[in-house]
Design a protein around this nucleic acid. Structure first.
Lengths: 362, 362
DNA sequence: AGTTGGCAGTCTAAGGGCTAGAGTGCTAGT
DNA sequence: ACTAGCACTCTAGCCCTTAGACTGCCAACT
């Protein structure tokens, strides 16, 4: 099932040239830039064979070859060089994270920004959902005599806090009692268990219902994963640099998808056991069907904080993107074990090239 | 300096038709749709006169007329009908604000979203800067033995809070004392006065420096106005519906400006004494030079919370946009006094039509 | 004086045909 | 197994032409 070394070299040449130029690659292109020792005719034969194998296709007769998703898959798994980041890239990353980072949202934002800046693709960062976080603490802080701040703390960090208005002027004692009650009811519970109303808690809450409700609201807010504040896009305008989005329709469709975050969420749910996930044109939604999405899981202090990655044309500089995501992921983790956790690649299952004869040649 | 009623009617017709169709309006268009009692030749004469007055211009000979910024100004000030919102629009607005709104960020977001949805333009909402807010309260809440949440409360509401890590395990008493000290130092001070390091406070802080620093950090964060979380864009992809952004270059430039929030901020600083500000193609930055920006000041409970508005082509449906912004502004304010606070209009100062002869007609 | 029909003149946008060039597949020869 | 050469194909860009859309102006009309 393996192809000859020469075919691999040629395929790699085509993929890389195509990534750089966005134009169908001809036999003479390959010869000139990569294999001057062979004639273009020989390369033509090889290209033809690679097409037969499903790695290449021609946009039309008398055009060069373009890689199929299959080809990108092979390229990523086997042919792609693992680049080291350049010094200026490393400096840029350092400069982003050297200033104090305040809170998880800030980490996400900076990560997205630096990824976009280095790769020149649109980047996305999402906070991982908090469904299996466990409530450790609840604080109710009196702000004024008729309002208080409710803070929910989990083993993963502070959930968003929320101010609550209460009627009448209330004493410090009242708030203290409320806090004790509330904490007792919620401590040790898992977020996902609380998404639906809980009869036990309903019963306990009594006169402190307003606080219980607020806590519940904060929690419910966190269990659905669509909170816009945990979804960062950076470098959106960079898609326009890609020739594949040079037509208005495509650009518009793409913008629509990026904005309507809902459709993006399922795509981003990367496999948690793999460090990187690469999705090549695999989504049902037609706007994403000619996109590639590369996401990495990010872990800080042993806790998963979310995914970040890039979205761009299928013709993406995987080598660079993978290197950058890998590096940043290692940096945030803080560990220096360099074992890259593996890459899960999924590609479009039926790429409509012309029918391939299954039964030998012609 | 005033023009004839008939000229006004014709100008209004041209402006409205152009807003609807985005195509140069011909004399026969005006005749057919608005003034069937006149001949197209008469209208041609009037159009020619309006061009002489600087309200219209022709993209080329043998094309119809297009309004100049002058024309839009007159239209907004005098000719534009003040629409009432339709029931479905009112329902939409109500539905957005009926669910509980959590915090100021939420108000901004929802406002932006509903504006974009109703007007079909890209909308922007920014929180007003907090420079003249006064610190009322500071709370330090112990979360774990080695971390605490610092909350700064002003007369305008809760500033962002921030967690602070401290070394070693510290007692409740320690945090209480820290809170008392910190509060004493900051209470009653204005945000803008604290943007630069304050020697008095520096002196006082002593062993609680870490808390003082955190408070300062929160404050400084608020005095520069570029916090991305207080800047919402909604309906970005809607610019693509506008034919004036049908070329890639323009679309790309526009996206760039929207993303690089820095250049947008000064434009949004609306005049505070006016309810609405309309900016027609007035910005230096070339990308915004053919944009119109309409912003309204939003006031909740007597306190300014920010500006919201739309950004779109100069050929904008001002009638609808103004009605919507007006209505929402009134709604949020809670008052039902229907005096619309006035509109400040500024237009491009030198619109380069062909030279107008100042000295009578030839 | 204000208004109108008619007409010549002008400019654009869209369609059609043409050509240069790029690239392939095939065949025959090394 | 490789290569040179050639016929064939398809595209992208260019020019040309034309239909149509408007205007401006003039002369006639009210």
């Amino acid at each position: 099932m393996s192809i000859s070394v020469r075919k691999e070299r040629i395929l790699q040449a085509v993929v890389e040239d195509y990534i750089n130029t966005a134009r169908a690659i001809s036999s003479s292109d390959v010869q000139a830039k990569h294999l001057p020792e062979l004639s273009s005719a020989t390369i033509r034969n090889e290209l033809s064979a690679l097409e037969e194998l499903g790695y290449l296709y021609q946009p039309h007769t008398s055009a060069g070859r373009v890689p199929t998703p299959e080809a990108y898959k092979l390229y990523i798994e086997k042919l792609m060089p693992r680049r080291k980041l350049t010094n200026s890239e490393l400096d840029l990353i350092k400069s982003y994270f050297s200033n104090q980072v305040v809170g998880m949202g800030d980490v996400l934002r900076k990560t997205a920004k630096v990824i976009s800046e280095i790769t020149n693709y649109t980047s996305i960062a999402v906070a991982s959902d908090m469904n299996d976080a466990i409530i450790e603490n609840i604080r109710i802080v009196k702000l004024t005599p008729h309002s208080a701040l409710v803070v929910v703390v989990t083993d993963r960090g502070v959930l968003k806090d929320s101010t609550v208005q209460v009627e009448g002027e209330l004493s410090d004692d009242y708030f203290d009692t409320a806090a004790r009650f509330t904490l007792e009811a919620f401590r040790g519970r898992k977020i996902s268990d609380l998404a639906s109303p809980d009869p036990v808690i309903e019963q306990v809450c009594g006169e402190f219902k307003v606080f219980f409700d607020t806590v519940m609201q904060i929690i419910v807010n966190y269990s659905d994963q669509l909170r816009p504040e945990d979804f960062m896009l950076e470098g959106v305008s960079k898609i326009f640099d890609q020739p594949e989005y040079n037509s208005m329709e495509r650009a518009r469709a793409m913008m629509g998808v990026l904005e309507g975050r809902e459709r993006l969420f399922p795509v981003l749910k990367a496999r948690e056991d793999m460090q990187l996930s690469i999705n090549i044109g695999r989504e049902s939604s037609n706007a994403l069907s000619d996109c590639a999405i590369v996401t990495a899981n990010y872990i800080v202090d042993g806790k998963p904080i979310g995914q970040a990655g890039v979205i761009g044309p299928i013709r993406m500089n995987y080598s660079k993107v993978v290197s950058v995501l890998d590096y940043i992921s290692q940096t945030l983790k803080g560990s220096s074990d360099n074992e890259s956790g593996g890459i899960a690649i999924s590609i479009q299952n039926t790429y409509n090239t012309h029918n391939t004869d299954h039964d030998g040649k012609e």
